[in-house]
Design a binder for these strands. Structure first.
Length: 215
DNA sequence: AACCAGGAGACAT
DNA sequence: ATGTCTCATGGT
């Protein structure tokens, strides 16, 4: 596939992105839920509220009333919904034996468990698997659909699992690909936010060579 | 002032 | 299996 050269072009243009923006695996998980259909700048405010209240742990989040949690989450939007979603995530984490205990589980088993949590869909599950648990899964999001459909490489409306399988098959599935999948998704998000918001192909787009003749 | 942002669940068809 | 509605804040 042409997915390798596209990655090289993005990396050459933007450099390493050092994802996920979060200091601990648990903070990554929280961020993955809070950023659902929400600008990251708003998520940062909510996470800052949690840190300021010294509440950024599964135990602390479960110890306070939902109304209090929702108040801390207010800047990230959907705060009532997300308060419940964080609680179900934390309840699962504690039942699983804590964040550290996740290392024992096999990736596919872990993925099914994550998807069983209310408020964790395919993308959030894969964010957690890749960026918190360092598992080799390729994250599909709205940016990925938009960019690669404009490049003519996918339709864009395929089911999530179809696209994930497609990208993973093209790039390889081994554990050695964790850094690649990490960087690739981060670059996709950065690229989508800097270029191509409205136009298919902008002046100075690092993917111009891959676009040529297709758009 | 409409439109969008690193989705997911509930529900009807 | 495929649409539609809802959830909500802050930036452009």
């Amino acid at each position: 596939m042409t997915l390798r050269p596209i990655y090289q072009q993005l990396l050459a243009a933007y450099g390493p992105q050092h994802w996920w923006p979060g200091e601990t695996p648990f903070e990554v998980m929280v961020g993955a839920v809070l950023t659902q259909n929400t600008a990251w700048s708003n998520v940062e405010r909510a996470i800052h509220n949690l840190k300021r209240a010294d509440a950024l742990s599964p135990e602390a989040l479960l110890a306070v009333p939902v109304t209090q949690l929702a108040e801390w989450l207010r800047p990230s939007g959907y705060f009532n919904v997300k308060a419940e979603r964080l609680r179900s995530l934390c309840a699962w984490l504690l039942a699983a034996g804590g964040v550290r205990a996740l290392a024992q589980r096999e990736t596919h088993h872990l993925r099914r468990e994550l998807l069983a949590i209310k408020g964790v869909g395919p993308e959030t599950a894969d964010d957690i698997l890749l960026y918190a648990c360092e598992r080799p899964v390729f994250v599909i999001d709205a940016y990925t659909r938009r960019i690669f459909s404009r490049l003519g490489l996918i339709e864009g409306d395929e089911h999530y699992e179809v696209l994930r399988a497609h990208f993973e098959a093209a790039l390889g599935r081994g554990h050695r690909n964790v850094p690649l999948f990490n960087e690739y998704h981060a670059l996709i998000v950065f690229h989508a936010k800097s270029h191509c918001r409205k136009r298919p192909l902008c002046a100075g787009c690092p993917l111009a060579a891959s676009c040529r003749g297709r758009i």
